[in-house]
């Protein structure tokens, strides 16, 4: 029992005496030197990461704020502070307001859709034993697939004349549409593609949540009489999934906010501004129109939304820990 303890204290002594021999200082100062040595080693090891964190994250972030608050343009040699002028311009712009509104609507479609479908799939997969990983793989596949390429496949699927969707609708006598070129459908179609891509992700998170529900709780529910499907669901499954669901909501919402690929490939925000969303606005203003101050202001707004969502997520994660 005392073996390892004795060994480590002996080694401590040895290292102290060794440092004493090289420079005869009191024990306190040698202890301080060891602390310094460890700190030095730590900062050396963390050094590259710290350097790049500053260069690639914190300095650019300050940069975004500076650009947003000044009149700086690409190539300009000087800049002057213009206060909130860029923000005023952004919020006065009908295009931006539409973009923000679209983004909110989009998230409000994608989140419930992804959540409900992901949860249902997870519950169905978990309710039986056979073919679990097969079904999981199929439903998860879209999440893996390169969205740019799959967007092209979706475009073919949604093609007004030769697309499978319209052909099917026509075959069963339903009205067809030019899905991506119609301002009434474009945004919803993008949302459906987003749900298609992320439902497997939500499913996987829910499956992990379902796995972590102790079997004992179901047994207790059985003995207590809550043995019908709905009672089990309400007594054990759904309440125990509560924290996971909140987590999924935030994660999916964040992903939906950051949607870009489908907009860029399929609609370019069109028709008109019907499917324009924040990240696409940010991209277009900053890099296509070289509208630097405007772009930076959009970036700040975008950042504010994402940070708010993430902070909510962090709070919920805390609550999840206290739940048990």
């Amino acid at each position: 029992m005392s073996g390892p303890l004795a060994l480590s204290s002996a080694s401590d002594e040895r290292s102290t005496t060794r440092s004493d021999r090289t420079s005869p200082t009191p024990a306190a100062s040698s202890a301080r030197r060891r602390v310094l040595k460890e700190a030095l080693a730590a900062w050396t090891l963390a050094g590259p990461a710290v350097f790049f964190l500053f260069v690639l994250f914190f300095v650019p972030m300050i940069g975004v704020f500076i650009i947003a608050l000044t009149d700086w343009q690409f190539g300009a040699r000087s800049l002057s502070f213009v206060g909130l002028a860029n923000f005023r311009e952004v919020f006065a712009d009908h295009g931006f307001r539409t973009s923000l509104f679209n983004t909110v609507i989009y998230v409000l479609i994608v989140v419930p859709g992804t959540l409900v479908l992901g949860l249902l799939t997870a519950l169905l997969i978990e309710s039986g034993n056979s073919c679990r990983s097969f079904y999981r793989a199929i439903h998860f596949l879209p999440f893996m697939a390169t969205l740019t390429a799959m967007a092209i496949a979706w475009e073919a699927l949604l093609h007004p004349t030769i697309g499978l969707v319209n052909q099917t609708l026509a075959a069963i006598g339903l009205p067809t549409a030019n899905w991506l070129r119609d301002d009434k459908t474009a945004l919803s179609v993008l949302a459906v593609i987003d749900i298609w891509q992320n439902l497997g992700y939500a499913m996987v998170l829910f499956l992990a949540g379902l796995k972590s529900i102790p079997q004992d709780l179901y047994d207790a529910a059985d003995v207590d009489g809550a043995d019908l499907w709905l009672d089990r669901l309400c007594t054990v499954t759904l309440p125990m999934l509560g924290p996971v669901s909140m987590f999924v909501v935030i994660v999916v919402a964040l992903r939906a906010f950051e949607s870009f690929d489908t907009v860029k490939v399929l609609t370019q925000g069109g028709p008109g501004h019907a499917s324009e969303m924040l990240l696409y606005t940010l991209y277009r203003e900053s890099f296509e129109y070289l509208h630097t101050g405007y772009g930076a202001a959009v970036a700040v707004v975008f950042l504010a939304i994402v940070v708010t969502l993430t902070l909510i997520q962090a709070r919920l994660m805390d609550r999840k820990v206290h739940y048990q």
Partner: peptide
């Protein structure tokens, strides 16, 4: 700092990074 970095979406920083 790492946690703050975790929170920053990379797209927001694209302009300064460019």
């Amino acid at each position: 700092l790492v946690l703050i970095g975790l929170l920053l979406p990379h797209q927001v920083l694209s302009l300064p990074l460019f």
